[in-house]
Simulated scan of single mutants.
Amino acid sequence: MKTDIILSGVGGQGILSIAAVIGSAAIHNNLYLKQAEVHGMSQRGGAVQSNLRISDKPVASDLIALGSADLILSLEPMEALRYLPYLSKKGWLVTNATPFINIPNYPDLDQVLAEVRKLPNHVILDVDAEAKKIGSSRVANMVLLGAATPFIHIPYEAFEAGISEIFARKGEDIININIKALRVGKTIAEEKLSVK
């Protein structure tokens, strides 16, 4: 078993929290894990990307080769397209539908999403809108992670446990709202998959 994941977005969206929760879930399932350094500008608004490799066997490299990622998980739709050359033919792209417009010549969103829809395996969801329904725009990243859990070979419960561990110092309310966000994302992805 191996799962190679590319996480992408912009600074301030919570990419590192997603990586931390996945990492915790992997470790608690006795899996090997390697994570590349975050590439790009980690300040708010700058492009951020990270490689995360999970396996039941030791992982030699922390970098994912072109055409071999099992999953691209992106909090920003244009950033998702940037890493498509890394996605395997059977890989999945799970992306936010809402752009983070941080450049003056941001491409037409309909065209960006049309490119995503060309992929045989994709889930597009508005994590920002879902997070607001839950009651906090800060949990959009966990909505996205929840939507990706069906494609990561780790039992779902381990992700909830990972949230409890990673956010423990922030208190029960923060843990609970992040777990709620994770569940919402998982439900949305499962609904999209059932109509595919």
Rank of each mutant, 00 (worst) to 15 (best):
L145Y: 06
P58G: 01
L93V: 14
L93D: 10
E79L: 01
V38M: 14
V116K: 01
L144V: 07
S55P: 14
E190A: 07
Q13F: 01
T187V: 09
I177F: 04
I27R: 08
K118N: 11
A69M: 02
G185W: 00
V48I: 07
I124V: 12
L84R: 10
G162A: 01
G146C: 07
K118Q: 15
N51W: 11
F151S: 10
N141A: 02
A19D: 13
I15E: 11
H39I: 12
A147W: 07
G9I: 00
R169F: 13
S137E: 11
P85L: 05
H153D: 14
E76V: 02
V123Q: 03
A181K: 13
S8F: 01
H122V: 06
A65K: 15
I27G: 05
T3P: 05
I22M: 07
P107H: 02
A80R: 06
A20R: 13
L7G: 03
S74P: 10
K180L: 14
D108A: 05
L119Q: 00
N176F: 04
A47T: 13
K89G: 12
P99I: 05
R53E: 11
L144I: 10
F151W: 07
D4W: 01
A148K: 04
S74D: 14
R53L: 10
S50G: 13
V139T: 06
T3W: 00
M78T: 13
S61T: 13
A181V: 04
K196L: 12
I174Y: 09
V143L: 10
A129K: 11
T3I: 05
S61Q: 13
N105L: 10
D4N: 09
I22N: 04
H122E: 04
E160N: 01
R44H: 12
K170A: 05
S8Q: 01
P155T: 06
V127P: 02
A65N: 15
I134R: 08
K90I: 09
G14N: 04
I6H: 08
A60Q: 15
P77F: 03
K89A: 15
K192L: 14
A97C: 11
F100H: 14
I64G: 09
K118D: 06
N105R: 07
F167I: 05
I72G: 08
P120Q: 08
L75M: 12
A140S: 11
N102L: 10
I64W: 14
E190F: 00
L71Q: 08
L81G: 09
M142N: 13
I134S: 06
E165M: 13
I166G: 02
L125M: 03
R82Y: 11
